[in-house]
Write a protein that binds this DNA or RNA. Structure first.
Lengths: 264, 264
DNA sequence: CTAGTTGTTCTCAGATCGAGTATTTCTCAG
DNA sequence: CTGAGAAATACTCGATCTGAGAACAACTAG
């Protein structure tokens, strides 16, 4: 067991005797995988590091947790607002959830740093502003990013892994939650919703069956009675408009087309 | 942004200039929700705290992370082995996964402590040994534990919430993974497997349909060709024995009976 | 105006699911 | 030893869901 050495019986005495150097120094950060749709493509927010380590590399937005002053969720929301420039009101339309914690021993060369990663789904957001110790901030298409393709930006720390985990979580979440709507405007059409699924899952879906399924799951979407202003960019009738429903989970779920029998 | 103040360009210089007091002191623990089946009931491992805070309360087993010396997963496995007395070999049959991180500002009255919670599924384990700063350690039935029923042991910190989250994760995991087998011996019968589902989901399942489903999902179980030594304790023929198959995910999933239409 | 695209609805066959039944084999009470 | 009850497994049947495709109308681009 590795408890801190000093532990008097009451808190005041403990704080008086407290010396931070007795503890193994460890720092805690939050890093956020912010996903959004831009021109129909899935993008992730990256910042260019202005200082070592990994100076010049791209990294996830994030920062150190203000120990004792904020919950982890609050820290993530604060960093998200700082890096995207979103108002508190606009932030309410963003889905934010904890993804997982990463603490490999030397993932940060400076010192032991454990990162609590968050995952955010946002509708099309304005261009980010660089700030703090970020030289630049930019939306980056995720295609070819994970897996280490040719056009990859070099990612700092273990952020490539965190993004890969976030994408897998996002793919799974679309199956059994209505969170695909978080990528869209408050009113959207079924074909727009289908485009979100197709982009994140990387597969074409059957338009007729998708339409039937979305409308049949209780609480997924509710009709506004209106229709879109224009038809599709390449023809077709105007689609009907819907709002997100009140369901938190999809029952029954929208399952991905077979990704190989069994997934052993 | 809340970066540490000093940040020279090379690591050696940084370490020389490093002063832990410049950082907000924060400690990191791992806490583990270890679930196992004992006499057909789901149990969680709890330890009685021998020292303040929450002296005399029951808490999840866990301890401080050795900063920079171990991965979070390794820290969880180490704590699990210490508290259960399991050998490295026996540990290999235990499923261990990260559950989430908890960092409310004053969840520990001593100082800012963030806990990375893990979730473990184990077959019937020997009685735990008290050790370190635990006065006692005991398997505790989870019935009536969450929710704050009458017979509750008072739980330290936010551990009641962590256990509740772990149980909900466990219920979901049984749907789309074969991890229910992690609660059983290497060879088991379909009715034993069904008992695990019924205990964790808290519902009786249709024996015939469950049987058909388990055998039809590819890679869930594979037959040993043997049958159990005895029939059921209250009669019935001897059941056939199976081993866990090689599937990591169940396709198609084993869905829970409707927990209210929609789950809004 | 024409050709091509797309939103929406329908149809239909196959798979799946919930519920119930049948058969056989076992344990337990007496 | 025997009979009652319980349980493992297999089977049936109707309702539901799914995937694939076709039909039709409404729209855009040229």
């Amino acid at each position: 067991m590795s408890r801190p050495p000093a532990r008097p019986d009451d808190e005041a005495a403990f704080l008086a005797a407290y010396d931070p150097r007795e503890f193994p120094a460890i720092a805690l950060t939050v890093d956020i995988v912010v996903l959004t749709m831009r021109q129909g493509r899935l993008n992730v927010l990256l910042v260019e590091r202005a200082a070592p380590p990994f100076q010049g590399c791209w990294a996830l937005p994030g920062g150190f947790v203000k120990a004792g002053q904020e919950d982890l969720d609050e820290a993530a929301a604060r960093e998200l607002a700082e890096e995207t420039g979103l108002s508190a009101g606009a932030l309410r339309r963003v889905h934010l959830e904890q993804l997982g914690s990463y603490g490999a021993p030397r993932r940060d060369p400076r010192m032991p740093v454990v990162s609590v990663a968050y995952l955010a789904f946002a509708p099309d957001l304005p261009d980010p502003r660089a700030g703090g110790d970020a030289a630049r901030a930019a939306w980056t298409p995720v295609v070819g990013l994970h897996g280490g393709g040719t056009g990859d930006r070099q990612l700092a720390f273990d952020h490539a892994q965190i993004i890969a985990d976030g994408l897998e979580r996002a793919r799974a979440k679309l199956e059994y939650t209505p969170l695909a709507t978080a990528f869209l405007a408050p009113e959207f059409t079924v074909p727009e919703l289908r485009a979100v699924y197709e982009e994140i899952w990387g597969e074409k879906l059957h338009p007729g069956n998708f339409h039937r399924k979305v409308l049949s799951v209780p609480g997924f979407v509710e009709s506004t009675g209106e229709t879109a202003e224009r038809g599709g960019s390449r023809g077709g009738p105007r689609a009907r408009l819907y709002r997100a429903g009140d369901a938190r989970l999809l029952h029954p779920a929208l399952l991905r087309p077979d990704r190989e029998e069994g997934v052993r």
